[in-house]
């Protein structure tokens, strides 16, 4: 084989390998599942159980704080686990077809909704929430602070914020129950534009672990 032939063989082989490599990388990226769970999972917030009737249950304890105090964006607000050490509280696993009770302590002040439609409690058992023990099907737009909204489960619950003149460390307790359906991954978010940027949907609203999260139902 002359020099030209050798060159051709070498370059064709290199080219083929590069193409195969790129194709393999593409397939790997397609199959790759984001490792939401590895660092962000807040499973310490979830306690599982079974009711006397055999119904699977789960209880999720969360805090909404003005500054998460940990991680890359310690000054951002967000949902957080109440347990020590503090941890972002927006990614967790829940059992399928389970009654999930969420208990939120909201330490954050009030922010108006952009769309007051989300003052309506939706998708929870009885379509109600309990704010400091008081049953509520609809929240006054003046009281809202954040929401807990899982679009694909039809769940949306407004969170009452603390008044401006509240004592330090004051909080509102919000409790509601919803039912999970079959296995899947469900995104959830706060619908109040409480983040940064021109429209308030940047920063904590646009990063998982603060005001957005993923619930994996298995």
């Amino acid at each position: 084989m002359n020099e030209r032939g050798t060159k051709a063989v070498v370059w064709t082989s290199v080219g083929t390998l590069v193409v195969i490599g790129l194709a393999a990388l593409f397939v790997w990226l397609l199959l790759w599942k984001p490792a939401y769970g590895s660092q962000l999972t807040a499973q310490s917030a979830v306690s599982l159980g079974t009711s006397p009737t055999g119904q699977k249950t789960a209880t999720v304890h969360l805090n909404i704080v003005q500054q998460v105090g940990v991680g890359q964006h310690a000054d951002w607000l967000g949902y957080q686990t109440p347990t020590n050490p503090l941890h972002p509280g927006t990614v967790f696993n829940l059992p399928a077809h389970a009654l999930v009770t969420v208990i939120v302590h909201n330490f954050d002040s009030r922010t108006a909704l952009r769309n007051t439609f989300f003052t309506l409690v939706q998708g929870t058992v009885g379509n109600v929430e309990y704010v400091n023990g008081k049953k509520m099907p609809l929240m006054s737009p003046d009281l809202t602070s954040h929401t807990f909204t899982i679009p694909d489960l039809g769940v949306s619950v407004p969170m009452e914020g603390i008044p401006n003149n509240a004592a330090p460390n004051a909080f509102e307790t919000i409790k509601f129950t919803f039912k999970t359906v079959g296995p899947g991954r469900y995104r959830w978010q706060c619908i109040v534009p409480c983040g940064s940027g021109l429209y308030g949907n940047g920063g904590p609203m646009s990063e998982i672990g603060y005001m957005s999260g993923v619930i994996t139902v298995t």
Binding site: T111, A112, L113, R114, N115, T116, F117, T119, L120, P137, L138, S140, P141, P193, S196, G197, L198, Y199, G200
Partner: peptide, 24 residues
């Protein structure tokens, strides 16, 4: 009945929500 209708802004073809400090 639940009171949502009166909480919604008046129907308009466009909305300029000024409720948020960040909104122009």
């Amino acid at each position: 009945k639940i009171g949502l209708l009166k909480d919604l802004p008046p129907y308009s073809l466009v909305y300029y929500p000024t409720s948020n400090a960040n909104w122009p």
